[in-house]
Structure formats: structure tokens, C-alpha cells
């Protein structure tokens, strides 16, 4: 009986003390020690409950890490950008998705939620600071964007271009909407262009990005005085997307649906499920509001966000190329609205 009692005491102690020590020790000591590189656990809560924890991760360039994302409360999604092409997809509550990656260059990267997880979903971001091993104390500076700088030099305030935006309820003067009655369609662009005299400047992508379709329409009208305005508008639509391969790329559409559609609507009508909750009405990508709009301003609004409008900045998530692709997609939505 004495021996049995001794065994029982040992067993009970091993459960009460050994079990917690063994499990926690395995997770926090053995597992990291077994791993060849650092393992960082990031818990994802909805933004109202704290968002990503931690929100800042510092790495050294050339370091390989495993980032383990845990969804704590609702379904989240995780991608890391800009320009890394890392998308871990959806993570159900309690699930873990991980990626092992080597950050070669110093720079700032953002991990962000890609699923509409809550009202403040777009706030759900964290930063990866990859520092230069030679100067580990100096933080990599965000790069300046030449497009945004050029707009500033031109004296264009992207927050008031073309003319601010309406607050909900419409008390504010409406966004510039030229009621042209025009509904240009990209599919009719090529036919419309045949036989028209097109000023050379319109062939320049650079020019088109810094001007509005309305300006292009006026130039076309000057050269083709007797052409019907609807045909000219179709021609402009064709020109505006002439540098794209016709159909938008699947990745761009997916990115729009994941990041923009909640407010701007899947078809760009400004009627996404969260449209009613923003500080200002989300823009609709429709001819009346887009004909007086410039591509570079759209680019800047996406990259930098809209001051006071609840439009988040995507510059920390998307590369310039990805952003231009999104701008083109907005034009595509605008110029395919008319069935």
C-alpha cells in the first residue's frame, strides 16, 4: 500500500505540475529551439478587439522567419505586401496559417486582413520593419511616390479633386458630376475610333494618366467637329483602356473585390455593404463622376487614402504596378456600365 501511495502521489504531481510544464515548455522552449529560424506568433483579433497582436515586427534583412497567424475571434484573411505576393487566404477562428519567408532587402512591409471581418476591417494591419544589418538602429524610410509628388508640385489637392465628396444625406455640395448623358462603352471604342482623326497626344499613356476623359473628349471634338458626341465618348473609352489587354486580370479583380468592393460595390456603383458606414459616400465608378477624373489622382487616392473620408491608404499594401492595375480596373468598371 505504501508503494502504491507513493506512485499515486507521483502521478498526481506529474499531472498537476508536469502537464502544464511539459505543454508550455514544448511550445515556448522546445519548438522554437528546434526551429532553424525565428517563429513569430501573430494573433488576429477584429480591429475593435485589438487587431493584429503584435502590430510591429522587426527583422533583419536576410533573416528567415516563420510568421504564424492565428485567427482568434472571427474569420480573417492575411496577405503581406507590397510586392511580395504573399496571400495566406482565409483563416477560420482558431486556425493557424503560417509562412516561412526570407526578407532579403531592408524595407517596410504590411500584413493586413483580406476578409471583411468587421466594420473597421481596413484598420487591421501590422508592420514588418526589415532593417539593414549594417545599421540595425535606423529604420527603413518609406519611399516617396513620384506620382504623388508630381501632383503636389502641380498644386493639385487630391482630397478636393475634383471637388471633395458628399457627406451622407447629401447636405454637402455634390461631387462634380457632369451630366453629359454620355455612357461610353469600351466595347464600342474600336469601331468608334475608325475614321476619326485622333490627336497624337492621346496615344500617350503618360498624357492620359494626367488628364481627364472629358479633356480628351474636347480634343477629339475639335478635330472631328461633325462626329456625334456619344461616338466620341466611346472612342475615348477605347483609348483610355488601349494599353490594357482587354479583360482585367483575375488578380486585380480579386484584389478589388477584397479591398474596395465593401464600400465601392462589386460593380463600382458605390453601393457596397459598408457604404452606409463611411464618413463620406464612397465614390461610384460611373461616367458622370469619372469623366472629370484623372488616373493619377485615382492612383494617389488609392496609395495615400482619402483624408477624412474613411478611404484607407493602400500604399503600404500595393506596389505602384498593382495600384495602376486597380486604376485601370476602375476605368473598366466605368466604361462597361452601359450594357
Amino acid at each position: 500500500m505504501r508503494r502504491l501511495e507513493g506512485i499515486a502521489i507521483a502521478l498526481v504531481l506529474s499531472v498537476l505540475v508536469g502537464l502544464p510544464v511539459a505543454t508550455l515548455g514544448y511550445q515556448y522552449v522546445v519548438r522554437p529551439a528546434q526551429s532553424e529560424h525565428r517563429v513569430i506568433d501573430i494573433i488576429a483579433y477584429a480591429p475593435e478587439a485589438g487587431g493584429f497582436q503584435p502590430t510591429v515586427i522587426r527583422l533583419t534583412a536576410g533573416e528567415t522567419v516563420t510568421l504564424r497567424f492565428h485567427a482568434a475571434d472571427v474569420v480573417h484573411g492575411v496577405a503581406i505586401g507590397p510586392g511580395l505576393g504573399i496571400d495566406l487566404g482565409h483563416i477560420d477562428p482558431g486556425e493557424v496559417r503560417e509562412i516561412t519567408y526570407t526578407f532579403d532587402q531592408p524595407g517596410l512591409f504590411t500584413y493586413y486582413c483580406t476578409t471583411w471581418c468587421s466594420k473597421d476591417h481596413w484598420r487591421m494591419r501590422g508592420v514588418i520593419e526589415v532593417v539593414d544589418p549594417a545599421s540595425p538602429d535606423s529604420l527603413p524610410l518609406p519611399e516617396r511616390d513620384p506620382i504623388i509628388d508630381a501632383l503636389a508640385a502641380e498644386g493639385i489637392d487630391i482630397d478636393t479633386y475634383p471637388d471633395g465628396g458628399p457627406t451622407h444625406g447629401g447636405a454637402h455640395p455634390a461631387r462634380v458630376r457632369v451630366s453629359t448623358g454620355l455612357t461610353p462603352h469600351v466595347a464600342r471604342g474600336e469601331t468608334a475610333l475608325t475614321g476619326l482623326t485622333v490627336p497624337d497626344i492621346l496615344a500617350s499613356l503618360e498624357w492620359r494618366r494626367a488628364h481627364t476623359p472629358l479633356e480628351a473628349l474636347e480634343l477629339l471634338a475639335q478635330e472631328n467637329a461633325d462626329a456625334d458626341r456619344a461616338r466620341l465618348a466611346d472612342a475615348v473609352a477605347g483609348l483610355w483602356l488601349s494599353h490594357t489587354p482587354g479583360q482585367p486580370a483575375a488578380g486585380t479583380v480579386a484584389s478589388y473585390n477584397a479591398n474596395c468592393a465593401a464600400c465601392h460595390g462589386q460593380t463600382g456603383a458605390g453601393d457596397g455593404p459598408a457604404a452606409g458606414q463611411t464618413a463620406e459616400e464612397p465614390a461610384a465608378f460611373r461616367p458622370d463622376s469619372m469623366l472629370p477624373m484623372r488616373s493619377d489622382v485615382l492612383y494617389a487616392k488609392i496609395q495615400r487614402g482619402g483624408m477624412g473620408t474613411d478611404m484607407p491608404n493602400f500604399g503600404t499594401l500595393f506596389t505602384p504596378e498593382e495600384t495602376w492595375a486597380l486604376v485601370d480596373y476602375l476605368w473598366w468598371l466605368t466604361f462597361t456600365d452601359d450594357p
Binding site: V15, P20, T23, H70, A71, G94
Partner: peptide
């Protein structure tokens, strides 16, 4: 007791997602 202890330890240190 094994199950019970594990339930407490996982509750305190594990994922906040109940399921």
C-alpha cells in the same frame, strides 16, 4: 484530473477561439 488540468491550461494559454 489529466483532462481537467489540460482544460485549465489550454483555457488560460491556448487560442481564444472556443471551438
Amino acid at each position: 484530473l489529466v483532462v481537467f488540468t489540460l482544460a485549465i491550461v489550454t483555457g488560460l494559454f491556448g487560442t481564444p477561439a472556443g471551438s
